[in-house]
């Protein structure tokens, strides 16, 4: 018999989805078995990532997009990640604050704290995306923390990555920031109502032109000279300021074009599979580390090696190898 939580989640029940996300986030066994149970129902959702510096307007734009997609009768999921304090573990998750207007439509919004992860998402974000997918969310919008150098997590987790820039946040720095050009499928110069937006757009277009990787990033690229339909990241000017809105429709068109490009190249499903594989490796490395450490602790190797490290008899790399090598061996009497 299928678990009643799984049943509810697959039927789209909000509480079941919310509880499932909590469970996986807390590494509660109930969450892990629930994810396993609903996993066959994943792989349908279109995952769109929004990344960019704090204050660029990611949350504001995300809500505009959520509204636009739900107007098309699509069920929208939102995962918004904010940083946890490395000192207290606490976090202020404030992305909902931008929801200042009544927004109609079927939107499920979940805030997550990064909980120590550095790649721009939280460890639970991957699972939250899959759970939302299984619960019938057709478009999932993911907002990254926005403080890292290049937030590579989102590049793997999303089908389509939107980099959000804004005038006045240090234009040339934004445009040339390592990795930015490579990460985006679509670039939005937000706050187009402000002075300097077209300069930012020009700088970004320049930076994209200068960066061949920007066009060649990810597995889907075939250079035009080899006849492949390539994706050239467009740069759009958008304003989400009430009364001065502009550019949202163009952005929506660009998003759908990117989706069609992925589908035409067979990349839509491939990216999901690829991310699942990455996730498996990530979990495997965590579990393997835990397993090794437990063994090494049990048979005394850990203590022994740590002592040697303290005496400077071994360097950290050799110490690690010694722990690995010691697994399964009889405990040596020193």
């Amino acid at each position: 018999m299928r678990d009643q939580w799984a049943e509810k989640l697959l039927a789209g029940d909000r509480l079941a989805l919310a509880r499932a996300i909590t469970w996986v986030e807390n590494e509660d066994e109930r969450g892990l078995s629930l994810l396993q149970e609903v996993f066959p129902h994943t792989g349908k959702a279109w995952v769109i990532g929004l990344t960019g510096a704090p204050g660029a307007g990611k949350s504001t734009l995300l809500l505009r997009l959520a509204e636009a997609f739900s107007k098309e009768d699509l069920k929208v999921g939102v995962v918004a990640v904010d940083p946890s304090s490395p000192f207290t573990g606490g976090a202020l998750l404030g992305d909902r604050v931008r929801w200042q207007r009544r927004i109609a439509g079927d939107i499920f919004f979940r805030s997550l704290a990064s909980r120590g992860r550095l790649g721009g998402l939280s460890r639970a974000a991957y699972d939250a995306i899959r759970l939302m997918d299984a619960a019938g969310r057709q478009v999932i919008l993911v907002e990254t923390v926005g403080v890292g150098q290049a937030e590579v997590d989102i590049m793997h987790a999303a089908h389509t990555v939107v980099v959000v820039l804004a005038p006045g946040l240090g234009d040339d720095i934004q445009a040339n920031k390592a990795g930015i050009a490579e990460i985006g499928d679509i670039f939005v110069v937000h706050k187009a109502d402000r002075e300097g937006a077209s300069d930012t757009a020009r700088d970004m277009r320049m930076a994209l032109g200068l960066s061949p990787e920007a066009r060649g990033r990810r597995e889907g690229y075939t250079p035009p000279e080899e006849g492949g339909p390539a994706w050239f990241p467009p740069v759009f000017l958008v304003s989400s300021l009430s009364g001065k809105e502009r550019g949202l429709e163009t952005l929506m068109t660009g998003l759908y074009q990117h989706r069609r490009y992925l589908e035409a190249r067979g990349l839509f499903g491939e990216r999901v599979t690829e991310e699942d594989r990455r996730r498996m490796e990530e979990v495997l490395s965590e579990e393997a580390l835990r397993w090794v450490m437990e063994r090494a602790k049990e048979d005394g190797t850990l203590e022994e090696v740590l002592e040697a490290l303290k005496r400077k008899d071994v360097d950290p790399r050799t110490a690690a190898r010694r722990i690995l090598g010691g697994i399964g061996e009889e405990k040596r009497v020193p």
Binding site: S84, T88, A91, G94, V97, W99, F109
Partner: peptide, 26 residues
């Protein structure tokens, strides 16, 4: 937050329905 909690702030002018929806989804 400083006490180590994860705090979701709703912003101003929420209806009771929106507040409860937030509690559920979060």
């Amino acid at each position: 937050r400083d006490a180590g909690m994860e705090v979701i702030y709703t912003g101003l002018h929420r209806t009771p329905e929106e507040v409860v929806r937030t509690v559920v989804e979060e």
